[in-house]
Design a binder for these strands. Structure first.
Length: 679
DNA sequence: GCAGCGAAAATATCT
DNA sequence: TTTTCGCTGC
């Protein structure tokens, strides 16, 4: 017979008790989600329907209802997103919301592991390696196992890493992954498996975890250890997961474990915006949520508050083109607005000139630069525009593409820090040793093996493995490391010492060293934000610095910068005016995806995500001629927007102003011909 | 065993 | 266009 227990009634707070007038500021569905209490809920929130707003208000509401803020967990896709949401919640309610915990799966898992990793046989002070470190390790093992000397081509490190990572994120065996996605390498399967094992062993032996380990080890920990599982899920009395459509099988397993004792999970997402299948995300996952959590309440948000009617008409049309049909009826009461424009530029150069000109024009009309975004498929698609923006002195910040902390010279400097934090870190040792002249892979390996037997691993000079000629460099390195280890400088001071030492290597190694030396100076400044080396490494791994963050810092004070972003990084954000550039067939959809209907659909969703970021102005552009090293060739606009009706997407042609004056009639004719092209 | 060169291959999106 | 691999001379 069940007993009664007394519990404070939190389930039905009276609306009049709240400081925030939820009922007035939210629509009916949003209100329902915000007021939702225990149990599991799935909020299907179309683009621009106030998904973030709903989450922010729910956080505030829970806190206002008396829930201990530290027992609320908000899992988001980027750390930036969780910071923003929690700041908004704090502004809405009060300081208490800053105690709410938030971050990415990886970040949260790393926190759990730093506390409990000992229970699964890992020291708690492990370091986190990023994808490029992982690939370097694989490369090393690949050579060690002599798999690079085979008759039949063995997959490259990138491919090997993505095989291993896919198998973890999709929870499939390596055999299945290779069979389904890399069948050309099936004959190497046993070697791939061997390498995967060796990679795993390496990570354990060197006390490092990669991104996937953070998830998998947390899962194992929680599965095996009931006490920790109980503790963790107790702390997550209320769990919210944003962007659920981009979670993978492993992550949904984690959510079940995080909420094992109560199932208070609110998942929020939009199946039409799933764009991370390359990371193992499955857009079906969100639809499976109600099957995984019993009694799930489903709330659909379908009123769009973001975009004008005309933008919404276009985005609805784009989505209709998916081979998989979405059951979506987004509507809006917003103004009709301007027709989105499709701009045909002669070439990429002209496209860049046009975009920057339009941006200046918008600025003159009183738009803030930060209300404007330029979006693109690949990081490199903005290179040409970046040159133009620099020339015109338009400040911008770029999200996506190569990260600052992933550049070779920064990774070099970070390697010194890594060996200080974790002397077991073979890859970092290898990196700093092979920088020295006369030390190649072989000597480096021998030295590292020898170092591991020493009490003081930083006293490299004592080794007799290096010939007399090069001994002096070894001594210099050795005294740098010993000095850093002994004196325990403040972080930025330590980085400064390393940079001073590293400068000459930088000049020898890179032709473009002046720029890199500037980066290194900037890096010293950045390092001031960290209290310890360990903390810095962890932060940089989980939340790398954007490449433009350095230049932007200075300009920020004058004017908030224009946003450039890959579409993937633009997820969840919105701007008044949005430009989508390089909208070409082969770019979006990417040339790699056109054989496969599933992948093609994802590319379409990607364009959908891009278009739905716009509030009032949307410009889609593409160049007719692409310049490559082989020469020029004609390119086609993306198949997703190619023959859309003109009453949804208005075609425009770029014409030089001076020529227009002379060739007025001809231009109109040309423009008309363009219109014909569209039909 | 190392460094440098030329040929061949692969080529993105991110935590 | 960039990255990786294999070869050659020191």
């Amino acid at each position: 017979m069940k007993k009664f227990i007394l519990q404070k009634d939190q389930s039905s707070p009276k609306p009049e008790d709240f400081k925030i007038p939820y009922k007035e500021v939210l629509n009916e569905r949003q209100y329902e989600a915000v007021m939702f209490n225990g149990g599991s809920a799935l909020v299907i929130a179309g683009a621009g329907t106030g998904k973030t707003r709903t989450l922010v208000y729910r956080v505030a509401r829970l806190v206002e209802s008396g829930v201990d803020p530290s027992r609320i967990l908000l899992l988001t896709f980027t750390r930036r997103a969780s910071r923003e949401m929690l700041t908004r919640a704090s502004k809405l309610l009060d300081e208490r919301c800053t105690k709410v915990r938030g971050g990415t799966f990886h970040f949260y898992c790393s926190q759990i592991l730093h506390k409990y990793a000992g229970l699964i046989g890992f020291p708690e002070n492990f370091t986190i390696i990023d994808a490029s470190d992982a690939m370097e390790i694989i490369q090393m093992l690949r050579a060690e196992l002599k798999f690079n000397k085979l008759q039949k081509r063995f997959p490259r490190k990138n491919t090997l890493y993505s095989m291993i990572s896919t198998s973890i994120n999709k929870q499939m065996s390596l055999h299945e992954v290779v069979d389904q996605e890399y069948s050309q390498f099936l004959n190497h399967l046993d070697r791939i498996e061997k390498l995967s094992e060796e990679y795993h062993k390496y990570k354990v032996a060197n006390n490092v975890m990669d991104f996937d380990d953070l998830l998998i080890n947390t899962r194992d920990l929680l599965q095996e250890n009931e006490e920790v599982r109980y503790k963790v899920s107790y702390r997550n009395q209320y769990l919210m997961v944003d962007e659920y459509q981009d979670t993978n099988a492993l992550q949904s397993e984690l959510i079940r474990l995080f909420s094992a004792t109560h199932h208070n999970v609110m998942a929020v997402g939009d199946d039409a915006q799933s764009i991370y299948s390359f990371r193992g995300a499955d857009h079906e996952n969100i639809m499976q949520f109600p099957n995984q959590f019993s009694d799930t309440k489903i709330i659909k948000l379908e009123e769009n508050y973001r975009s004008t009617k005309r933008i919404l008409n276009l985005t609805n049309k784009v989505l209709e083109r998916a081979s998989k049909k979405y059951d979506k009826r987004l509507f809006t009461q917003n103004d009709i607005g301007e027709l989105p424009a499709l701009i045909k530029a002669p070439d990429e150069r002209d496209q860049s000139r046009f975009i920057s000109q339009m941006i200046l024009q918008l600025r003159e009309q009183g738009h803030e630069l930060s209300d404007i975004a330029v979006l693109f498929r690949n990081g490199r698609d903005s290179f040409d525009l970046e040159i133009e923006l620099n020339q015109k002195k338009i400040p911008f910040i770029k999200y996506g593409g190569q990260k600052f902390s992933e550049a070779a010279h920064i990774k070099d400097v970070l390697s010194y820090i890594r060996v200080l934090v974790n002397p077991q870190d073979t890859i970092a040792w290898n990196r700093i040793l092979t920088l020295l002249e006369g030390i190649g892979p072989k000597t480096a390996t021998d030295l590292i093996d020898w170092l591991k037997t020493q009490d003081n691993p930083y006293e490299i000079g004592a080794s007799d493995l290096v010939s007399e000629r090069y001994l002096q460099q070894i001594h210099a390195l050795s005294s740098l490391l010993q000095d850093l280890k002994k004196n325990d400088y403040p972080v930025s001071k330590g980085v400064e010492h390393i940079v001073t030492y590293y400068k000459s290597f930088c000049e020898n190694k890179f032709d473009d060293y002046p720029k890199r030396l500037k980066d290194l100076e900037a890096f010293i400044g950045i390092s001031e934000n960290y209290s310890t080396f360990r903390k810095m490494l962890e932060d940089l791994a989980l939340d790398p610095i954007e490449a433009t963050a350095i230049d932007t810092e200075a300009s920020k004070r004058d004017e908030s910068p224009l946003i450039l972003s890959t579409i993937h990084s633009a997820k969840g954000l919105e701007w008044k005016s949005v430009f989508i550039i390089q909208c070409l067939d082969g770019v979006i959809p990417s040339g790699y995806s056109i054989k496969n209907e599933e992948e093609l659909d994802e590319e379409l969703r990607l364009l959908y995500v891009a278009c739905t970021r716009a509030k009032s102005n949307l410009y889609i552009s593409y160049p007719v001629i692409q310049n490559t090293s082989y020469g020029e060739y004609f390119s086609n606009p993306s198949r997703f927007i190619n023959d859309i009706e003109e009453n949804l997407l208005e075609p425009w042609v770029l014409v030089e102003e001076s020529e227009t004056d002379v060739l007025d009639g001809a231009e109109e004719k040309q423009a008309l011909e363009e219109h014909k092209d569209q039909e």
